[in-house]
Write a protein that binds this DNA or RNA. Structure first.
Length: 526
RNA sequence: GCGCCCGUGGCUCAACUGGAUAGAGUAUCGGACUUCGGAUCCGACGGUUAUAGGUUCGAAUCCUAUCGGGCGCACCA
């Protein structure tokens, strides 16, 4: 809708035009402050320019009024334009909110270490990434969802050690001396039992078999992670294992060439040449590559597949890592501007006002699966998508279990279900409803229709600004308008019954489509 | 100490990325059922946008300083 209006104005003014939604709806559907920016070049007051531009509009198919007010130019869309657009949307559900974008994007997210099930902090990045994925795909982008599995390095050794100790303690009933750092949790007990069945008890006590045990266990943990994600409707296209990358290390090292140097027996990358604070070690004195080395190969591999754009979603505690990875990308001969790193901030959880402190390595973690089971996948996804990903989020699980308007997912679903109920109750059949033209609507209906038709621009805006919370915000607002309209107007038996039902169909379409962008299936009854 | 992010009604968050009178929810108080789902709706209360300067037609948004908070500053991932 907005694109069509903008295209029209671009022809008229011979320049790109910023379109806003006026604060006060009585001003019209759209407005532009273009006169303010023209004021400087034309050396005239914005008011006069706006007046002149507004009065230059003659008859138009899409505008019923164009007015200048205090320097703004306000546009009111014609009923026939809105009606035609609404009818098109209802007849082309899959294209409603799509665009002709077709860039190839590689989106990497979650990428949690395979050392334990996902916790609530991972859930946020997961929901953020998957929502972005769905929005982008709706717009037409060709996006691959990828998970980077860190199945090498110290944390895998620690997994083996932790599993042995856990097994010695809970399966073999031995007295165990716990080290300072180790993983803990129910999943280890289960894995230890499975390990005994598969390998015999010696696997738990023989230190020389720790690596063997760990390599087996990480696959089991990955299965848990995949299950945790599937429970909230998240699925990946590809999994890339860190352990498979190092074969390529020598070749990538050659590409980097002068970008690395040897000092103190170690290999360093000149990342300080590219905005990093200092150079970083990539190969230690004992020849073991650092974590960064894996990431260098991984990103080179990404780029060699020729995507137009690369998006990584990382926990906010990794923000210091961005500069060195971008530096590595440059040294490997690629354009680091194509790599976009988005951060997902901490989550703190309340339950009846009681805060939980979370920490992955310590015992007191909140499992993602516990929360998704407690409040349901839909509520979890809605709340996690509701706030800018780069600011901390705090919420109370009790609120999300409520069945009333304080629970946003309930509120939106209720709006959708209400529409289904009234459609079923009406004596009109679908053909009669669809045949109605949305002309001569009252002001409430016009406002509701317009809001329902905004979905495409919300999808576009939410994706391109990477701010997925705009979508749930919109759905709450559309639902509120629907509830109010429903309260104020009686539908069944109304002389405009067919029009109102068609209007409701458009609202339902936007609610349903919007929810599906969040991995949520709209409810037809509560 | 250095770097990044952030300070908006009691609480949780918006504000179209520089635009019109800073909006929602929640909490508190008050109201609306002879009604298609009251699982809803309406009203009231509540703000010097942390503070002080600056930039311009116009600032919550940009710049500077101060105060306060989070995260990071590994040859861990």
């Amino acid at each position: 809708m907005k694109q069509r209006v903008q295209a029209q104005l671009r022809d008229r003014f011979q320049r790109d035009v910023v379109l806003e939604k006026p604060k006060d709806r009585s001003f019209g559907h759209y407005a532009t402050p273009i006169a303010f920016s023209l004021a400087k070049e034309l050396r005239k007051s914005p008011m006069i320019i706006a007046d002149e531009l507004a009065s230059s509009f003659g008859e138009s198919d899409i505008f019923s009024a164009v007015e200048a007010v205090k320097g703004y130019i306000n546009f009111r869309l014609s009923e026939s334009f809105l009606d035609e657009y609404a009818s098109w949307a209802l007849g082309n559900e899959d294209e409603f909110g799509s665009s002709d974008a077709n860039d190839k994007i590689l989106l990497e997210f979650v990428s949690a270490n395979p050392t334990g099930p996902l916790h609530i902090g991972h859930a946020r990045g997961a929901v953020y990434g998957d929502t972005l994925l769905r929005l982008g795909r709706r717009l037409g982008y060709d996006i691959r969802a990828e998970y980077y599995v860190n199945d090498a390095g110290n944390q895998i050794d620690l997994l083996g050690l932790s599993l042995q100790l856990e097994g010695q303690s809970s399966v073999l009933n031995m007295t165990v001396e716990w080290p300072e750092k180790y993983y803990r949790g129910e999943y280890l007990t289960i894995l230890a039992e499975e390990a005994v069945q598969k390998f015999g008890t010696a696997i738990l006590t023989d230190e020389s078999r720790q690596t063997e045990l760990a390599l087996w266990a990480k696959d089991g943990v990955m299965e848990l992670i995949v299950e945790d994600l599937a429970a909230v409707n998240i699925h990946f296209d590809t999994f890339v294992r860190e352990s498979t990358l190092y074969d390529d290390w020598e070749r990538v090292l050659e590409k980097i060439g002068e970008g690395v140097y040897e000092e103190e027996g170690k290999l360093w990358i000149r990342s300080s040449d590219h905005a990093d604070e200092k150079d970083r070690v990539v190969v230690r004195e004992d020849k073991r590559p650092t974590y960064l080395a894996g990431d260098i190969v991984y990103h080179n591999r990404k780029y060699e597949q020729g995507f137009d754009h690369y998006i990584n979603i990382w926990g906010a505690d990794h923000h210091g890592y961005i500069a060195r990875v971008k530096a590595a990308v440059e040294f490997s001969g690629h354009d680091s501007k194509k790599l976009e790193v988005l951060l997902s901030q901490m989550v703190s959880l309340l339950k009846e006002g009681q805060p939980y402190k979370m920490s992955k390595r310590a015992g007191n973690v909140i499992l993602m699966s516990d929360i998704s089971e407690e409040i349901g996948s839909d509520a979890l996804r809605f709340i996690f998508a509701s706030k800018k990903s780069d600011t901390p989020l705090e919420f109370d699980v009790e609120v999300l279990k409520k069945q009333d308007s304080s629970n946003p997912i309930f509120y939106v679903n209720y709006a959708h279900a209400r529409i289904q109920t009234i459609l079923a109750k009406s004596d009109l059949d679908l053909d009669e409803v669809m045949a109605a033209r949305l002309l001569g609507l009252n002001e409430d209906a016009d406002a509701l229709l317009f809001e329902a038709l905004l979905l495409p621009e919300v999808i576009d805006d939410a994706f391109h600004s990477r701010q997925v919370q705009k979508l749930p915000d919109y759905l709450k607002s559309l639902s509120a308008r629907l509830h109010k309209f429903y309260y104020d107007h009686r539908i069944i038996g109304n002389e405009d019954e067919a029009k109102m039902l068609k209007l409701f169909l458009v609202v339902a379409l936007s609610l349903r489509t919007g929810l599906s962008m969040m991995g949520i299936t709209a409810k037809d009854s509560m």
